[in-house]
């Protein structure tokens, strides 16, 4: 029985490592990959490796499912573009949609859920009302949540399209306003790169740093292996394409207040996915790295979450990072009285 997600990491890193797997090990690997939303990426990595017939069929299913997800994500982005046709500011695509729209390796086989876009904070009312006019509506019509999002979060409360049933998250920066690092949203917008259809994606260093912020400063590392796989692919592609990349990345990490987070992401990516990283960008190995690896790999061969205590520690940490203590206490108190869970 697989005790952690290491076999998945190994298969992604070194596709031929799957050759000696038995049927039951394949079954376990597939369950782990599905649970970590990495089966599509794995399927693409294993295209040229010989695998048992039924495994091939499962991998082919994953490739086709993600081809369609890609098409739907691009369609959804275009729907938003048309809804905001009169808006003069930049509309920046984020995360998975940006990777496929910019045709990056990180978009190949990646699962994409909601549409994430970023616009200037001052323009939020205009963008919001244009989207409402075009058929999106609020998901959580709760006054506390609504006010909480508007005062403290990096995005509007989520909206869903009433006909297509797809969610959109409209961001104005990359981290909650209450989080300790404060990325420079204006710098991201200023440097964003226009695509042919008029939508934008972040410039390479900003895109990578957003992925880093998303991994460490905005959650309990759930889905972390997938995020780190994104980071691995972005680093490989950007650093091969541009000699200046590491230098720009270091400068931008300072701009966005994400130097430590970047260092840790690069160390973890190098450790798990053998990402070739520039040594001075990755900083010194720290004892805490061990806990991050432990958390990232906490999954067994049935696809179950394991290491409950480690997970809980990272859950607490995610809230700690997201807001100052007094505010956290007030927030949890309000949510507890309402019988809900904190917004993610």
């Amino acid at each position: 029985m697989i005790r952690d997600a290491l076999p998945l990491v190994r298969a992604l890193r070194e596709p031929t490592s799957v050759k000696p797997l038995t049927s039951s090990q394949w079954t376990e690997l597939i369950s782990v990959a599905r649970a970590e939303s990495l089966l599509g990426s794995l399927a693409h990595r294993l295209k040229d490796v010989s695998v048992p017939d039924r495994v091939r069929a499962v991998l082919q299913d994953a490739i086709e499912a993600h081809d369609l997800a890609r098409q739907q994500a691009l369609w959804e982005a275009d729907c938003a573009r048309r809804a905001l046709a009169d808006y003069r500011g930049k509309i920046v695509l984020m995360k998975g949609t940006a990777y496929v729209a910019a045709d990056l390796a990180a978009g190949v086989g990646r699962s994409i859920g909601d549409l994430d876009i970023m616009v200037a904070r001052d323009d939020l009312p205009v963008v919001e009302s244009a989207l409402l006019d075009a058929g999106w509506e609020w998901v959580k019509p709760d006054p506390y949540d609504d006010q909480y999002y508007r005062e403290h979060m990096h995005e509007l409360p989520p909206m869903i399209h009433r006909e297509r049933d797809r969610m959109i998250d409209v961001h104005h920066t990359t981290l909650p306003l209450t989080a300790r690092p404060t990325p420079d949203a204006q710098a991201i917008l200023d440097n964003a790169i226009a695509l042919e259809n008029g939508l934008h994606v972040m410039a390479a260093p900003d895109m990578l740093l957003h992925s880093v912020a998303h991994l460490f400063a905005d959650g309990d590392l759930a889905g972390g292996l997938r995020n780190l796989w994104d980071i691995n692919l972005l680093v490989r592609q950007f650093s091969e394409a541009d000699e200046e990349f590491w230098m720009e990345l270091n400068i931008r990490a300072k701009t966005h207040d994400l130097v430590k987070e970047l260092e840790r992401a690069l160390r973890l990516a190098a450790r798990l996915y053998e990402t070739p990283v520039y040594r001075f960008s990755a900083g010194q190995t720290q004892f805490a790295d061990y806990f991050y690896v432990r958390r990232l790999l906490a999954r067994d061969g049935y696809g179950r979450e394991t290491r409950k205590l480690t997970r809980f520690a990272f859950y607490v940490r995610s809230h700690w990072l997201r807001m100052p203590p007094v505010m956290l206490a007030r927030h949890l108190w309000t949510k507890w009285r309402k019988g809900g869970t904190p917004p993610k």
């Binding site: 049927s23 039951s24 394949w26 079954t27 597939i30 369950s31 048992p52 017939d53 039924r54 495994v55 069929a57 499962v58 049935y302 696809g303 179950r304």
Partner: peptide, 14 residues
Amino acid sequence: APTDNSVDFTVRLE
């Protein structure tokens, strides 16, 4: 039994 004990899906009852 499935050929080669190879399967498409896992169901968990927990």
